[in-house]
């Protein structure tokens, strides 16, 4: 059986999702029995071109924020049979997309000051806004166990499972005490799980790194957050951390209360 040819690429990102793969240390040798890694800059000393390999599956980390990102992801798409949006930036735009709400010029000025004219940047987009995406691995960073399951499913030619249950459901199964009952706040009721509620399990409210769950009751979410003293601005910041561009405008308005 031919091994699955896998490539890892990164666009605008912290490259932490690729690191999550490398952290599967005890399973890497098992994984390599099934897959051949054809490109993985972060994990190799290869100094040739990055985008010159053909792959069965390309894991694309990061969002599209530059012309270079855009041309890279188009090339990756052409040379790969399957493209996986790998992590929150690729999936949603992620943290990078906070910039979209400020305007590119203001953002450049704020970060680079007098050198801002050297920088070329566009509005941040998820990978799926530029090229078709076959599968998505959610999260910031991705969940290692989920990643391994994904790889194995793809290796045997199966469609990977993509659970949509909200964080709340998994949080209850872990027997966590609800953060709302502890006086805190959490986006868990409207956010897609699959993370096994890792943040609430350690006392931090969900910030929505996996995006909205299907059919989210955003009006009720807003009511709850308001009851806990969050005003529109606080809710907006909460939503924008990972989902500045990912939440449809009508839902965003309903969630934040901003007209």
């Amino acid at each position: 059986m031919n091994k699955l040819r896998v490539a890892f690429y990164s666009l605008t990102s912290c490259e932490g999702c690729q690191l999550a793969f490398l952290e599967c240390e005890d399973r890497l040798l098992d994984i390599l029995q099934q897959v051949e890694i054809v490109r993985f800059r972060e994990a190799s000393s290869y100094e040739g071109g990055e985008l010159d390999a053909d792959a069965d599956v390309a894991f694309v980390e990061g969002s599209v924020s530059t012309a270079h990102d855009e041309s890279a992801v188009r090339t990756i798409r052409m040379r790969s049979r399957r493209v996986v949006a790998f992590g929150a930036c690729a999936d949603l735009g992620g943290v990078n997309a906070i910039k979209n709400r400020q305007g590119n010029e203001a953002a450049k000025e704020r970060v680079y000051g007098p050198y801002s004219s050297w920088i070329h940047t566009s509005d941040v987009r998820p990978v799926s806004a530029v090229v078709p995406v076959d599968f998505t691995l959610h999260g910031c960073p991705v969940d290692k166990d989920e990643l391994v399951r994904y790889l194995y499913a793809l290796a045997v030619g199966r469609k990977p499972a993509d659970p949509t249950a909200p964080v709340c459901f998994e949080c209850k199964l872990r027997e966590n005490i609800c953060l709302f009952h502890k006086g805190g706040t959490c986006m868990g009721p409207v956010v897609r799980g699959g993370c096994r509620a890792i943040c609430p399990a350690y006392g931090a409210g969900c910030d929505g790194c996996r995006g909205l769950a299907p059919d989210p009751n955003v009006a009720l979410m807003r009511t709850l957050l308001r009851e806990k003293g969050l005003n529109s601005e606080a809710i907006r910041r909460r939503v924008d951390l990972f989902n500045a561009s990912a939440v449809p405008e009508d839902l965003r308005r309903e969630l934040t209360g901003y007209a």
Binding site: R27, I31, Q33, R149, Y152, A153, A155, V156, A161, L173
Partner: peptide, 24 residues
């Protein structure tokens, strides 16, 4: 969100999936 069913003593529904392990 399914929190009600997760904590319910009388909910019995489950999902079954096939997954690979040990390098397939």
């Amino acid at each position: 969100c399914g929190a009600c069913t997760a904590v319910c003593p009388t909910c019995v529904c489950f999902d079954v999936r096939d997954e690979m392990s040990d390098g397939c």
